[in-house]
Design a protein around this nucleic acid. Structure first.
Lengths: 230, 230
DNA sequence: TTTGGCTAAATTGTATTCAATTCCGAATTC
DNA sequence: GAATTCGGAATTGAATACAATTTAGCCAAA
């Protein structure tokens, strides 16, 4: 009956979730004592987890002043998306040259199996999870664990903006958020055909389209965030 | 007379330097008590610094077993270089479309001013610092701080391999390590001409050439590392 | 009212302490 | 002789305690 997961892991995961749920407002100072009480751990493991999050870019830190939620600006989100373009396009390129046929086929399969769920899903979190899962699997095809790691980090930081974006779309489009599965399929087809240019181009335009939506969403997020209690 | 730098910062920097100097052998377990004594700090700030390094990919961590130096394998180095290609090519692309003419000119200037030093330098650390500085400045031209951040992290982890590589070259080539300043110039010229394809292609081939050398160097590093005392 | 500085409270920084777990070697068994 | 188990030593995990620093409120003076 071994305890597999340490306290700091638990705290770390909780913090990431809190960050994604807007528990911290951008630029807000984080009170260690209060937070440690909420999370049921002492300040020691809490600070270790916070340091990890700083290194990963989720939070910032100032000497003798403590930890802060990272400020949220359109240009920050823009940067994250541009970094995603860099990482994912190269991943697609590498996948074209070295992924095994069967692994590519498996990804195409996954896309097909997911399609019904994709079309019917209305929950933004669910949609987002599926979308991220696709991109993560594609990065896996590159066989490069650094690219996977960086992408995972970027997605973690983009996530809450995307959630806002998806919710906004759902509300405007009457309960239906757009799962752009055709763009995904186009990318996989490019890779399956070992057509590097086609795959990379499809990937680039896919992410850049999302970027436009997301930077717009940030502006709206701003206003939502600074409404007193909501 | 304020103390500007915290202990954990100092410890963190010391650890990064130690990692670059082979103070830890790949896969070696890190003893917290012993290390904290060496660094003149208690385990609390040490562990905070170690957690940062884990999040940055310099070290690994296992529950209840502690921190380990990251294993060093050819495929790991390969991954890092491929990630660099992704980041730096995109940075070059962005620089082409949005860098100010004067900033590009400033980088070209920097290259010219550095050339004599570049040609005369024999100290691998000095050469490496100049090379990294160039790449960092180029990334700055992209205006994207995430790309800069990721590149900085990758370079930090690649650094000690490159040092081995440069030392090996120096020893073989009779005291002269090759500063490939012409490749750098070619990249800058591509950007100055706003010729995206030329700049990106030059960047890609520049890094990939380095990658070949470095993965070779890893194999040699292996053998050097496991010689008893050296 | 505003500014400056002083004090007290709050908060962060780090050492220390002790509990929990893993590690390692010696004794035991097969 | 090899594998196994057991117990103590070493190491990590986390809470607590206290020092250092920052923050906030207050009062006085301009």
């Amino acid at each position: 009956m071994a305890k597999r997961e340490s306290n700091v892991d638990r705290v770390y995961e909780a913090l990431r979730r809190m960050a994604a749920d807007f528990a911290f407002k951008p630029d807000q100072r984080i009170n260690e004592s209060a937070l440690s009480e909420v999370l049921g751990a002492s300040r020691t493991p809490l600070r270790e987890a916070l340091n990890r999050l700083v290194a990963e870019g989720f939070l910032t830190f100032q000497n003798n002043r403590g930890f802060f939620c990272r400020p949220l600006t359109p240009s920050y989100i823009m940067d994250l998306y541009e970094a995603r373009v860099a990482v994912e396009c190269e991943a697609a390129r590498l996948a074209c040259t070295r992924a095994a046929d069967e692994d590519i086929a498996a990804l195409a399969d996954y896309l097909n199996r997911m399609e019904p769920e994709y079309e019917s899903a209305t929950d933004p979190e669910e949609l987002l999870a599926m979308d991220e899962s696709f991109h993560a699997r594609l990065a896996q095809l590159s066989g490069n664990s650094e690219l996977q790691r960086i992408l995972n980090n970027l997605n973690g930081r983009i996530r809450y903006i995307r959630l806002i974006d998806l919710k906004r779309m759902r509300d405007r489009a009457g309960g239906k958020a757009p799962g752009d599965i055709s763009a995904h399929r186009q990318i996989v087809e490019g890779i399956a055909a070992r057509n590097t240019d086609a795959a990379v181009t499809a990937m680039r335009s896919h992410i850049e389209k999302r970027r436009e939506e997301a930077t717009e969403a940030v502006r709206i997020a701003f206003s939502q965030l600074y409404v007193p209690d909501e």
